[in-house]
Amino acid sequence: MHQHVVRAMNVFRLIGLYFKVNLASALEYRASFLLQAFGMALNNGSFVFFWYIAFSQIGGRIGGYDFNDVMFIWALCSSAFGASHILFANMNSITRIIVSGELDTFLLQPKDVLISLLCSKTSLTAWGDFLYGFILMALTHGGDVPAWSMFLLGIVIGGLLMTAISVTAHTLTFYLGDSSLIGGLALEFVISFCIYPEGIYRGLVRVLMLSVIPASFIVHIPLKLARHFSPGLLLLLFAASAAYCGFAYVFFYRGLKRYESGNLIIARM
């Protein structure tokens, strides 16, 4: 037990160190950093206009959600995406790194391969996504404590789930060869089911959203918990998210055993 705690602490310390180095690097180009973050926040903000128009057309609920509910899932999805891409931006490059043989560099390091791989890059625009969620929450939910609690918890869970989805999709490269297409599409695909009310779908799609496409665990269940808290549902959220992330981790390491080293020489600055 003690060993597991020490290992977990080491992982958090490693993530923290990568974060500090990546942030320092981003701040070297302050103007570009701020412009990109601002551009992305503005980009996301335009969708508020879409929902304003959609709700003003009918003046009621859409798929069981009111305007504030939609703003909650948008805020949570945006901040969770931002957090995952601030910390683990390399998730989008896993296939390229495997195929090009760059993975050798990570295998030689004395730390967890997957964590090192994920953390070694950050995204500047992700800061815009991350902060946008907080601004949207402040504007639409003010001091609503249950909403803020689930929003903050949802960022952690959603960020990890989004990373797990990307890792799982890119890991297929170990098993099937170049999976850049599915790797690139997987997360976008899941996000498409996160940013619209759950109630617009029925039947099989709803089942998929609770399994293969875990969109319900990323935004819709946190929204339900924010509106009507239920300890059982919270437990289900934790269990399902842990299972999904655990699967992605094991799937990656199983696949890694099939990796054949290249002879590419790379210097990491």
Binding site: I58, G63, F193, V205
Partner: peptide, 24 residues
């Protein structure tokens, strides 16, 4: 694939909107 996904999602969204009320 993305084109199809977009149309699929928006088909469901607008169907829900039209259920909720009249759209001019």
């Amino acid at each position: 694939l993305f084109f199809s996904l977009f149309i699929f999602v928006f088909f469901h969204l607008w169907r829900a909107i039209y259920k909720g009320g009249e759209v001019t």
